[in-house]
Design a protein around this nucleic acid. Structure first.
Lengths: 250, 250
DNA sequence: TTTGTCAAATTGTTCGTACAATATGACACC
DNA sequence: GGTGTCATATTGTACGAACAATTTGACAAA
């Protein structure tokens, strides 16, 4: 039975296309696990046998499995084998924006642009983005709404190369979507998650009472050359949003 | 000059000992980066040359570099090379407890055990730990204090195998330290971070006013066999504690 | 000047192979 | 019955090799 699942899963790998073989295997395995086709606690076939059956070398199979171990979906023990982790399997926090998160669920995200201006970078912004103090940066502030309910206030600063992003763009799309559309790939992000009490203005924007708790997040994002792309300081309604993280010890 | 740094760094690898070669290289490289010996933005030698100089194969070198890329310390681009990331390099959140976090800083952590009891697992606990509903679990509640100031209230549930942890242990050591001492290795943890408003009792414990914001964290931790080790529901004083996460897109 | 092409440099993917380390279960031995 | 030993299964580490993909810079061509 397990054999059938595997066979069907890995039936037709594209050996000539641009997508790496290990990645194709990884994706299908991940889907099978998240869909429950391979149940929690189930043991996978050993690496060598898998390789033989799929006509792939052991390193290729290992790479696919290792990536899923790093994601916290699989667990392996020398001498024993590889298993799907017990416990509810959830996708961890990935490098996506709130807009993406909401769009992935059933919510309909909309955005109100609260302010839009080109400013000179202050100490904090210059430090986080790695740009010169006083250099021009785009400063935007948006209210994110899901199904008509305000969820978060997002404040972002972007370096000089993005000054041409228009107000219209920001009303239509999420910031990360705009960046992707311009060919920018975010590779590393450093986040700091905390909480504080809201003041009157903040509570007003989120349609709650002054003095209620806010979930806060600061993020600095960098592309694959290590250049600062975006610095954000956001606050969320904690009854509507939270952060999930999966940590894996290496 | 760069050459000298490298030479001295990788001078004597232990080729017979139990520590993998890639790990020895990784550790030394990481230290050199964190210490600033290799400055932000500096370019590393290419993989092949590094391998030749250290008498290691390219896969071994690659493994070491890849691990540091995954940690967000290095960045590499095909056709270009490998660089130390720009921006402040900070260690990300690791699989440690608040106790460890505080002990690593200059703070002196102490603990007050608020309650200690063996209970039957309710729905939530049974689900998160993957144990039978109604099976015995150890339920503890602790107040964590740093330098005399209360920082967090920690509530944990542990499965049957840990019922023999004593009240005395919990006063002396952090929970994760106790677990490590028993040979338990935590491999995967799923955390959910949020916020809420405190009630009178909670505010009293943390020496703040009722109605101030709390930072909350739920965590389920599993060992390398995927067995549930610990489920915790914690709240923190947000002016004294926050979570830092480094995300790396693969 | 601009554009296209090509070579060089570097990381990315994939294969094959060998041996080491660890957990399990079977079996012999005391 | 208990205990140690050994074979087996499986993942972990390490090597070597080849070719692909991408970026840069140099150079030629329009």
């Amino acid at each position: 039975m397990k054999t059938n699942v595997m066979e069907s899963l890995f039936a037709d790998l594209d050996r000539n296309g641009p997508i790496p073989l290990y990645y194709q295997v990884e994706q299908r395995l991940e889907k099978a696990i998240l869909d429950g086709q391979i149940p929690a606690g189930a043991r996978l076939e050993n690496e060598v046998a898998l390789g033989e059956r799929l006509n792939l070398s052991r390193p290729t199979i290992r790479r696919a499995i290792q990536d899923l171990v790093d994601k916290g979906l699989l667990v392996r023990r020398r001498g024993i084998g590889t298993q799907v982790v017990h416990g509810r399997v959830t996708r961890g926090v990935e490098l996506t924006s709130l807009f993406d998160d909401l769009a992935k669920g059933e919510k309909v995200p909309t955005t109100v642009l609260l302010s839009y201006a080109v400013e000179k970078a202050n100490d904090t912004v210059a430090d986080r983005l790695g740009v010169q103090l006083g250099s021009p940066v785009l400063h935007i502030k948006r209210l994110r709404i899901a199904d008509g309910v305000p969820v978060a206030v997002l404040e972002n600063w972007l370096p000089e190369q993005f000054l041409d992003i228009t107000e219209h763009d920001l009303g239509e799309l999420g910031l990360y979507e705009i960046l992707r559309g311009r060919g920018v790939t975010i590779r590393v992000a450093k986040q700091k998650i905390g909480a504080r009490t809201s003041n009157t203005a903040e509570a007003g924007l989120l349609d709650t009472d002054r003095g209620t708790a806010l979930l806060t997040m600061e993020r600095a994002a960098f592309d694959n050359a290590g250049v600062g792309i975006e610095y954000g300081s956001h606050y969320y309604r904690p009854d509507l949003y939270s952060f999930e993280v999966t940590l894996v010890e290496k």
